[in-house]
Write a protein that binds this DNA or RNA. Structure first.
Lengths: 362, 362
DNA sequence: CTGAAAGCGCTAACAT
DNA sequence: ATGTTAGCGCTTTCAG
């Protein structure tokens, strides 16, 4: 198919690999009539290369369709120009969005993004056991994954900078939102509307997943209530498992609560809110006329379903994490051994008013 | 923090890289009292290593917490154990789901997944210009991305096997569904229900994106109509840009069609169907009483919104593509130069009945 | 069954 | 400003 006039390299090429572009730095050097060292310098825009030489090298490289082998250069420099991203596949929307933000930043800086999806407990256990990231990345971003200290220790043993998105990791830098504040914002909106009977659909506070987010959001919910002089009722806090189906079940339970149902419900994620909306529809109840619903996320479909919600910037959190990591890598050479500030960067949330919240029924 | 009793390697380690686990194959060899060649063999389960020796090597490796450097081994073998996945970020759900299927297969075989998101035209152009996958992957999976022959050529020049998911790529192996058949299935369902006035919301057939999927689905729509003796009306085919908002706009337009609105609409994606549902709601129309809606995908939220749809297995398509690729790589050594069969593997679709379709209004 | 040695393609001293 | 050379850590002939 592609006729190769004369084969650049002198040996029989490896069976298959980086492509037909077999030219090596030696070929470029020969063609440009300089040494490989000069080629290396010219290609990386290093000082001490005369403009004329540089041009000649660049031309030769171009003609031979040459690209530096990341393997070879990584082997000597010890940098591999790749970042590992690990996520649990909990909440597709969230993860896809965070990934987009991360990828954009990484690509812009010439870093590869190596993805690890810890879809279930087995994969997760195996991941921490074998640590497949070892020797393969210059840094790691953990997205929406709560880790215990043993797991964090394992990751630390990689010897590369770490950062977390959404879930707090003790001792690790993080990008996230103030979940307590976000929840309070949502619930306060309900209170402002005149609601006093307000339910909450969140995650299991004592479950094995160890997500801390539901804990905070529940705390925010309670705080808002207390501040308004409303006594939180434990029966009005339900577990929706952060899925649409879970949200539906939780809402159904709320509706048949002894002592009357709430007139408004704060759902700790938009997907659960979608499920709650379905429960309402199937119960013949109208939203917001009978029951108000407020979510948290601003999922891409929240607008489509007219869901009032507290928006959080997901791609931005991912992008910020990526930027932080690259910054660490850049500074690693100049600064001391542990330049890490295990600090947290909080991102803004905002209330997005749509049509699932209104005044309580008379 | 982590006390390192005695540093395995003898030279000052590179500033930062594959981690604290600095032990090299030389260290393992020394510890096991064998040569590096034997270590290499033992670790890769090659023949010609006595069980006793193998055990000793394994133990030594374990004690030193040794892992093979993928860079070093890749450099000599020419295999890098990574697969590139490139996708357009068109349809978050689809892409996240496909990615999940791909990742699972790749991980199982010890391959890394290197992600490239071609979010906009700039990134896309840049991608094909610089080909950042070059020398970095053993194969490439293209998800839901239509490519022209120049772009396919560029990818081919990588010299690694290629495969496509969802969108057909001429001359490239692919995993997808029969889009014509899927559309016919959806529309036939509406016809069976008694509908004769059936609209279609799809993508721009002449747009710059060159997606071929909308073309086929539209063809399937027309075929089903024709087969039932119904004359397709061009005014009832609208572009919904494969987004919820686009679907809403298209549905609104359909509703104000001169000569009356359709009683049923086939949406070429579930996300557009969600938008169409919103248009109905805002027009005070009920579904399916006034207008029936059928989608295509079986998006994770389709169930939540009771959407009747034609389901396609997305993760399975991704997984199949990954398996095909690995199979090519495995066979590459034994077979001839181009072992590629640029064949297509079709995946089954099925109608999922829910509550957005019913008999036409009397 | 095991070891010695030659690189893979590149970068980083160290010359010049 | 440019060239020489010694490896980075591993796999792989080729000899034992």
């Amino acid at each position: 198919m592609h006729a190769v006039p004369s084969f650049p390299s002198r040996r029989s090429a490896p069976a298959r690999s980086g492509g037909l572009s077999r030219a090596s730095i030696v070929d470029v050097a020969a063609r440009a009539g300089v040494s490989v060292a000069t080629v290396s310098r010219a290609l990386r825009d290093m000082p001490n290369v005369s403009p004329a030489t540089r041009d000649r090298v660049l031309a030769a490289a171009e003609e031979l369709d040459y690209t530096v082998s990341p393997l070879a250069s990584g082997l000597v420099t010890g940098r591999i120009n790749a970042i590992g991203v690990v996520l649990p596949y909990a909440g597709r929307w969230f993860f896809a969005e965070a990934l987009r933000g991360i990828e954009e930043v990484l690509r812009g800086q010439g870093y590869d993004l190596i993805l690890h999806v810890l879809a279930d407990d087995d994969r997760r256990a195996q991941f921490f056991q074998t640590l497949p990231l070892r020797r393969r990345v210059d840094g790691v971003i953990i997205v929406a994954l709560p880790l215990d200290s043993r797991e964090i220790g394992a990751l630390r043993s990689l010897g590369v900078p770490l950062t977390g998105v959404a879930e707090p990791l003790t001792g690790v830098h993080g990008e996230r939102v103030d979940n307590v504040g976000a929840a309070r914002l949502a619930v306060q909106h309900l209170i402002n509307l005149g609601h006093r009977r307000i339910g909450c659909i969140g995650g299991d506070l004592n479950g094995p997943e160890r997500f801390s987010v539901p804990g905070w959001r529940t705390q925010g919910y309670r705080e808002a209530l207390t501040l308004a002089g409303i006594e939180p009722r434990s029966g009005w806090e339900r577990d929706g498992r952060f899925t649409a189906d879970g949200g539906e079940l939780a809402m159904t339970a709320l509706l048949s609560q002894p002592g009357g149902a709430p007139t408004a419900v704060f759902c700790q994620s938009d997907e659960m809110a979608f499920g709650a909306l379905r429960a309402l529809r199937h119960s013949g109840l109208r939203c917001p006329d009978d029951v108000s619903i407020v979510g948290l996320d601003d999922h891409e479909l929240a607008h489509t379903f007219d869901l009032t919600t507290v928006a959080q910037p997901v791609a931005a959190q991912g992008a910020a994490a990526a930027r932080w990591l690259l910054h660490q890598l850049a500074g690693a050479s100049t600064e001391g051994p542990e330049p890490v500030g295990a600090d947290v960067n909080f991102h803004e949330v905002r209330l997005v008013l749509r049509r699932t919240t209104g005044r309580p029924p008379a």
